[in-house]
Each structure stands twice: as structure tokens, then as C-alpha cells.
């Protein structure tokens, strides 16, 4: 029994860590939460105020005169980049999973799958480097001007086509970063279905593709939804790649899909240095509130996805 108690005690650290993170962020951000109220979520101004003035007291908190903290543009940027990433990642992920599950001979499957799985292993900052030196010039000079010309009639697809930094570039690179999660989970789920399902469909005269598309894919829809939500959580919190290719726009909402944006995660990195110059410390606390909002969103998204996947019998999804 003692061995069990010792492991239980050590194991609890895993759970306690998550609670401690949330508790300390709440404690540290609390003055900012009191000051900013709900305005924080729907105002579109992030301004440290006049840093050489004397601090004034608002709602019992000391802030610099003219300081405003509203992150609507960050929420918009985070949700839009994630939405674009998902629009690209889900179809590509499903297609690649079907290819890996049924289109490749079983002997080669492990090795062909490696391409997709290694994509998940590449660090975020290397994706950022690739995005910065390769994708931005490519999309900005070669692809976006053509998209403006040919797709400009669609709302938000018209010009100016920008420099390559921005929403669509982020969405594309984020999609590549989250696709392996969807593909690997879905491939395992497809392969894990009872062989009789596949064989039954073939016996009724379906082709191999029709069996995959019409029978097996519907059977794993819960896994598809769960892994897509898991991928959503990952895209919401992605920092370094977005930081390097988003253009880090402040206080503006994107006008079209080529426009520069900023996300909550990348904003925390890009703004901490300047927030530290605020002598009242409210800017750093407001950044902590950004981190708290991001943390709460990702916990909600991940909890939902995990419960869905547990229910679908995919316990190991997303593990390395």
C-alpha cells in the first residue's frame, strides 16, 4: 500500500500543476481583471498610456493616464487564423489519413506515415523560419497578387494583396502544423475499425474508395471531430511561427485575408518588453489576463475534445 501511496503522491503533481498555473495567473491578473472588466474582450485599443505622466487611480487601481487595455483585435486574429487553418487542415487531414490507411501497402505504411508524423515533430520556430524565408516571399509575390486578380470578386479576397505577412499565410502554416495530429489519429482509428465493416462493404459491391468514404469514414466521425477540436486547441495557442509570419498588427482588425494580424499567444511575446516599461505594472498584469483568457479557452477546448475522444475509445490520441 505504501508504494501505491508514494506513486499517487508523485503522480498528483501532474494534476496539481495545471491547477497551480490557473490559480497563479488569476491571482496575478486579478487587478487587471477588476480594472478592465468585460471591456477587455470587446474594446479594440491596447495602449500603455502616457508613460511619463503621473499615475492616476481608476477603479481603485493605479494606471498611467490614457492607458487602455482591449484585445478584440487579438481575439479576432486568433479565431480567424485558427478558422483558416482548420478549413485547410481538416480536408487535407482526412485525405491523407485515407491514403495512409488504405492507399498504401501495409508494408510501406509505417515508412510513408513517417513523413506526416515527422511534420509534427518539427519545432514551431523552424516552421516560423521556413515561413519567414520561403512562404512569405512565395505567397506575397507569386500567389496573393494572382488571388486578388482572379478571386477578387469574393468578399475579403480583394486587394491590396499585402506583403505576404498576415492572416492567410498564418492559416496555411498553422494548417501544416496541426494536420499531422488529425491525420495520425484518424489513420489509427480507420485501421482500428473491425475488418468486417470493410469486407461487408466490399461484398455489397462497393469499391475500396467507396468503402472508405461511405462506410469507414462515417464510422470514425467522432474521432474526426475530437481530433479536429484538439488541433483547434493547438492552433489557438501556437506562438513562435505566428509571431514570425503574422506581421504582428496592433489595434486593427484585418480588412481582407491578406492583412496583417496578431494572435493572443504571439502578442504576449511581442509586447512583454514594452509592457515592462509601465511603472504601475498594469500592462504586465493585463498581459497576464491575455494569458489567462488563452489558458481558459484552451482548457475548455481540450477538455471537450478529450471527453469526446475518450467516449470514442481513442485514449492515446495526440500522444507523441
Amino acid at each position: 500500500m505504501t508504494f501505491r501511496r508514494i506513486t499517487a503522491g508523485l503522480a498528483s503533481i501532474v494534476g496539481v500543476t495545471l491547477i497551480v498555473i490557473v490559480v497563479f495567473l488569476v491571482i496575478y491578473a486579478w487587478p487587471a481583471v477588476r480594472l478592465n472588466g468585460w471591456k477587455f474582450l470587446y474594446k479594440n485599443t491596447w495602449s500603455l498610456g502616457r508613460l511619463y505622466g503621473n499615475p492616476i487611480t481608476v477603479h481603485g487601481q493605479q494606471i498611467m493616464p490614457g492607458a487602455h487595455y482591449g484585445i478584440l483585435f487579438l481575439i479576432a486574429g486568433t479565431l480567424l487564423t485558427t478558422a483558416i487553418a482548420l478549413l485547410i487542415a481538416v480536408p487535407v487531414g482526412v485525405g491523407a489519413a485515407m491514403f495512409l490507411a488504405e492507399g498504401v501497402p501495409p508494408l510501406l505504411r509505417t515508412w510513408v506515415s513517417l513523413f506526416v508524423e515527422l511534420l509534427a515533430a518539427i519545432p514551431s520556430v523552424v516552421f516560423g523560419l521556413w515561413g519567414y524565408v520561403v512562404v512569405i516571399p512565395f505567397l506575397g509575390y507569386r500567389v496573393f497578387p494572382f488571388m486578388v486578380k482572379w478571386l477578387g470578386f469574393i468578399p475579403f479576397f480583394s486587394g491590396p494583396s499585402g506583403s505576404g505577412y498576415g492572416l492567410l499565410t498564418c492559416g496555411f502554416v498553422l494548417a501544416l502544423m496541426i494536420v499531422p495530429l488529425i491525420t495520425a489519429t484518424l489513420r489509427d482509428a480507420l485501421l482500428g475499425q473491425a475488418a468486417s465493416l470493410h469486407e461487408g462493404a466490399l461484398a455489397l459491391g462497393a469499391s475500396r474508395f467507396e468503402a472508405q468514404w461511405g462506410v469507414l469514414l462515417p464510422a470514425v466521425r467522432r474521432v474526426l471531430i475530437g481530433s479536429s477540436i484538439l488541433a483547434t486547441g493547438r492552433a489557438l495557442g501556437e506562438t513562435m511561427a505566428v509571431l514570425m509570419i503574422s506581421g504582428n498588427a496592433v489595434n486593427i482588425l484585418p480588412r481582407n485575408i491578406y492583412d496583417t494580424v496578431s494572435t493572443m499567444a504571439s502578442f504576449i511575446v511581442s509586447q512583454l518588453d514594452s509592457a515592462l516599461t509601465d511603472p504601475t505594472g498594469m500592462a504586465v498584469r493585463s498581459l497576464a489576463e491575455v494569458a489567462l483568457v488563452l489558458c481558459v479557452i484552451s482548457i475548455l477546448v481540450n477538455s471537450f475534445a478529450r471527453l469526446l475522444l475518450y467516449y470514442a475509445g481513442q485514449q492515446g490520441a495526440g500522444a507523441p
Partner: peptide
């Protein structure tokens, strides 16, 4: 305890790394 720890571990994987970094900065 075991299901709870498993759930916490799976959610902790999904917490953005910048949040953990900022938590480290604050604490």
C-alpha cells in the same frame, strides 16, 4: 484518481507553451 490524472495530463498537453512561459515569468 487515475482517470482524473489522465484527464489533467491530457489537458496540460494542450495548454499553450507561451502560457506556461508566462506563468513561469509571473511566479
Amino acid at each position: 484518481l487515475a482517470p482524473a490524472i489522465r484527464f489533467f495530463a491530457d489537458v496540460l498537453v494542450g495548454v499553450p507553451s507561451i502560457v506556461i512561459g508566462y506563468f513561469g515569468y509571473v511566479t
